[in-house]
Every structure is written in C-alpha cells, then in structure tokens.
Design a protein around this nucleic acid. Structure first.
Lengths: 229, 229
DNA sequence: AAGTGGTCTAGACCACAAA
DNA sequence: TTGTGGTCTAGACCACTTG
C-alpha cells in the first residue's frame, strides 16, 4: 500500500486486508499509531477510517482491548423511513389520502400500561388510507397521545404521518416489520383478497420517554421495502 | 448553552434547536465557524457533530450551500443482518439446521441475465431449513455462483448462510423485505397453514460487480424484524 | 470568484478496560 | 498500572457549488 491520501484510502486498504484475510477473523489488528506510521498519515486519519468500519460492522473496537476483526461480522442494513406521501411520489405516482375515522377511544390493551399514559383515559385513534394513483397503497392505523397533539389539529387534509414528522421531531422509538394476512376489513380497504399476505410496519415513537404515537402501516399486496448496502 | 465540552454536546444542542424550531425546517443554520465560536469549541468538533446529524437525516449539508434543516426529515432505521444461527441463539433458542437439497440447476429467469453470470450454464441451488428448538424457523432458498464457491464445499453441517459470511466478505448488495402467502410446500416446511402470511427477506450479494449469491429467507408465521432508533 | 463544508496534521489529554 | 481508542485544538489547505 502506497501512502494513504485520506481516510477513505485507509478505509479501503483496511477493508482489503479484512477481505484478503491479511487480518484474520478473530485476530487483533495493529493499533492506530502503528497503522498511521505504516500508512504515512496522522493517527486521527486512521481513527476516522476504522471508526467507519466499526460502525458498519467490519471491525470491533475497544479501549485498551484494541481493534479486532469479528469472527462473524454483523452486517447492517439501513432503510429510509420517509413520509408516505414522499414514498409514493418517489415512485412517480400521485398521492391520495382519505381519513377514515378520528376519535377518542379507550386505549387498547397494549398501550394502556405504557409509562406516561397511565393517566390517559382515552387516546386519539386515527385511521386513514393512502392512495397511489387512486389505488389503495397503505392503511394507517394510529394511536396518538392527546396530551401532545392540539385537539384542534385536523388530519383530514394532511395525514397524521406527515403532521407528526413536521411538528414533533421525535427522540427515540422502536420499529418492527412483519407480515399479516388480510382480514375482511383490510381486504376491503386495500382492495385485495382476504388472506393475502401484507407487509406491516409498526412504529412506536417517544419523546423523552413519553409516548407520542403508535402506528401500524399495512401495505397493499406485493409491497417491498428495499435498500442497497 | 454553556460551553460545549465535546462533539456530543454540540450534537445534542443542535438537535435541541432543531426540535425547538430555533432552527426552522427549511432554514439554513449558522456555518461551522460561527457555531464553533458561539459554542466555544473547535470547528472540527462542530463538524463532527453536524456530520452525525446529517448521517441520521436531521440535517442536510452542502459545500458552499451550507447546512439546512430538511423540510421533511427522512429518518433512517438500521437493522442488523446477523447469521441466522446467531439470530436464533440470541432469542435463547437452540439452532438446528437441515439441508434439504443442494445441486446444480439451470439458473432461474431472474438470474440468467445477471451480468457476470451469462457464461454460467447452471448455478448451485441450495435449500435448507433452520430450526429454533426443533421448530421450523426459517427456510433458506439460495442460488450460488459456482465459480466463487469450491465445489467440494458441503453445506450439510454449516449453512450456506454462515459459510458465506465467514468466507466471502461481500462488497455490495441489495436487500428487500416483503410478505408472501405460504404455498403448500412452504406450509409443510414451516409447519404453518397454507395462505399464512410470512415475512420474506431477499438478498443479492455481489463482490466487485460479480454476483456471489441470491437468497430468499422465508420466516415462520409471526416473525418480526425489530430495531430501536 | 468566493463561501462553505471536508479533511489533514501534530501534539495533547482523557477514559476505559485489560493485565 | 498501563495500553489503546476517543476526542480536542489550532491552523491549514482542498474541493465542491453556488452566485
């Protein structure tokens, strides 16, 4: 390896060594200072490169323990979670939206016990359908913490999905992806057959430990989430 | 904001301002040098913090164009793609594995045209079942480029999934998640009812533009991919 | 042409975890 | 105790892109 011109060079060279097994799985690699000397650059430059490799799962780093090539690398895949309207427009389709219902209802079992919601007798329950070129695209079933959304907010014109993204930047949350079979109601909404397999994304969003919203997005048949790695 | 002690402080303060709309959506924020002065730290420290926020979708940065708060932030969710055996063991279950078939077969239509495979008359087709505590967990249906896998390699004891991760660190690939209804064969393999909704992950893996493998992992009913953000 | 982010360097100190 | 990664600083130059 010639002299490294930048952290990308160091990154690529390190990746080459991992792949070529110059640095064997499970083995410890030279420390930053040595690599910097060898590659003719500053230690910070090596640090930047190795940090990047650690972030994507190619290396494991520990203070004092040094940097190692994992026996079995855990690859990471990143999906963009965009506003549904953008998702549809990015496919070159026209976004449509129909609010199906919006009312206060007793919290469902799964939510009643959530910390920060014990006091809430009822939650705002919003159901809506997103359309792509007038065809059903995604069913949005959402529970909102009424304490965090002004009661006057209407989701008739702008979906709760978009309103939330624009108005309540969140802090933490969880996301789960699964498959469900369409029941009669879903089949009618999404225009598919009962028992069709549908992709469902469930998201729980918190702001400082207080639940903001929980949503289930159920997509029409054949929908796929895709990403390049 | 008091004096920033490190890039995390700058990161947090910036995030606070985004959330509090001190920096409004669509607006340009002060440049790095100004922020460094204001927060009493070096410009590189500000750079590190803002770079991180850009990576996670909270900011957009351009040379000369400056840094802006996106009108509609695109959040990113990261999933770990682990070896299936580890996935099962992480759930506290015992991993089992059954090789169902392994033979050379004509490439299916979707693959025949792939660049780098035009010459390959046949691909290695491996079908296997992963078990968690002796119950079907995931069906692995894989096509391998025979040029990249020694013919003597047996997938009877170690799954192709694990063999590949250990032996062919990949460069690029794509990943797609979708839902499929169980057909009779899948239902029999996974021990579920026909038409049950199943989560399917499809991955294409390339090394330097040459296809290594294409795999479809079909999970048992109720399986979810989860992540915290 | 000029402004802004991107990165490098050298030296320094700190924090954490292994020995 | 000590080695290793984590980070900060100040100054510098480069690269992209916008006006």
């Amino acid at each position: 390896m010639a002299r490294a011109r930048g952290w990308q060079d160091v990154h690529d060279e390190a990746l080459r060594r991992i792949r070529a097994r110059v640095w064997a799985p499970g083995a410890r690699i030279p420390d930053e200072a040595d690599l910097a000397t060898e590659l003719g650059c500053a230690r910070v430059t090596v640090n930047r490169a190795l940090r990047e490799l650690a972030r994507t799962g190619w290396l494991e780093r520990r203070r004092k323990g040094g940097t190692r090539v994992p026996l079995t690398p855990v690859r990471k895949a990143t999906f963009d979670i965009a506003i549904i309207r953008h998702e549809i427009e990015a496919r070159g389709a026209r976004h449509g939206y129909r609010l199906l219902s919006d009312r206060l209802e007793p919290a469902p079992d799964g939510l009643r016990a959530a910390p920060g919601l014990e006091g809430a007798a009822a939650l705002r329950h919003v159901r809506a359908l997103h359309l792509a070129d007038d065809r059903p695209y995604c069913f949005e079933d959402r529970w909102l913490n009424p304490a965090l959304v002004p009661p006057a907010t209407s989701f008739a014109a702008m979906s709760a999905n978009e309103w939330l993204v624009r108005n309540l930047a969140y802090t933490r949350g969880t996301l789960a992806v699964g498959a469900v079979a369409a029941d009669a109601a879903l089949a009618a909404l999404l225009g598919c057959a009962a028992r069709d397999a549908l992709l469902r994304i469930e998201r729980v969003t918190l702001a400082d430990r207080v639940p903001i919203t929980q949503v289930a997005l159920t997509y029409g048949p054949g929908h796929r989430m895709e990403t390049a790695t």
